[in-house]
Amino acid sequence: MTAEDAKRDGADTETAAEKAVGGMRLVEDLVARVPGFADAYECHVMNEPRVLPHLFFWDVVQDTVASYLGEDMFEAPTGGTA
Results as ranks from 00 to 15, higher is better:
15 T>E: 05
38 A>V: 07
5 D>N: 10
18 E>Q: 10
8 R>P: 03
33 R>E: 11
18 E>N: 10
37 F>I: 05
67 S>I: 09
16 A>M: 09
26 L>R: 08
36 G>C: 01
81 T>H: 12
82 A>L: 13
43 C>N: 14
49 P>D: 09
73 M>E: 13
70 G>W: 05
12 D>P: 01
34 V>Y: 03
23 G>V: 04
44 H>W: 03
56 F>Q: 02
44 H>G: 02
73 M>C: 10
53 P>C: 04
52 L>K: 15
29 D>I: 05
33 R>H: 08
45 V>P: 02
70 G>Y: 01
75 E>Q: 09
59 D>T: 12
26 L>P: 04
43 C>S: 06
16 A>G: 01
38 A>L: 08
72 D>M: 04
50 R>W: 09
20 A>R: 11
75 E>R: 12
81 T>W: 11
26 L>C: 15
8 R>Q: 12
3 A>K: 13
10 G>Y: 10
30 L>Y: 07
27 V>D: 00
49 P>V: 03
10 G>I: 06
23 G>K: 04
36 G>H: 00
80 G>H: 02
58 W>Y: 13
8 R>V: 11
54 H>P: 10
51 V>R: 02
7 K>M: 09
8 R>W: 06
9 D>Q: 14
59 D>Q: 08
30 L>V: 14
2 T>K: 04
53 P>L: 05
76 A>E: 15
41 Y>T: 03
74 F>H: 11
38 A>D: 12
33 R>F: 02
55 L>I: 03
33 R>K: 09
38 A>M: 10
56 F>T: 07
25 R>K: 09
36 G>W: 00
69 L>I: 04
34 V>Q: 06
11 A>E: 15
77 P>I: 01
10 G>T: 09
30 L>T: 15
48 E>G: 03
63 D>E: 14
26 L>E: 14
5 D>W: 08
66 A>F: 03
19 K>M: 07
22 G>T: 08
62 Q>W: 07
45 V>T: 12
61 V>E: 15
23 G>P: 01
54 H>F: 13
6 A>T: 11
43 C>W: 07
17 A>M: 11
14 E>R: 15
76 A>T: 08
31 V>I: 01
68 Y>K: 14
51 V>Q: 04
61 V>N: 09
40 A>R: 02
32 A>S: 11
79 G>L: 10
31 V>S: 00
60 V>P: 01
57 F>C: 10
9 D>C: 09
21 V>G: 02
46 M>H: 13
48 E>I: 04
29 D>Q: 07
4 E>C: 01
61 V>Q: 05
19 K>G: 07
9 D>W: 09
15 T>P: 00
4 E>S: 12
7 K>C: 06
59 D>G: 08
39 D>R: 02
13 T>L: 12
9 D>F: 14
29 D>V: 04
14 E>L: 09
11 A>M: 13
15 T>V: 07
26 L>A: 15
44 H>D: 00
82 A>K: 13
82 A>W: 08
51 V>Y: 00
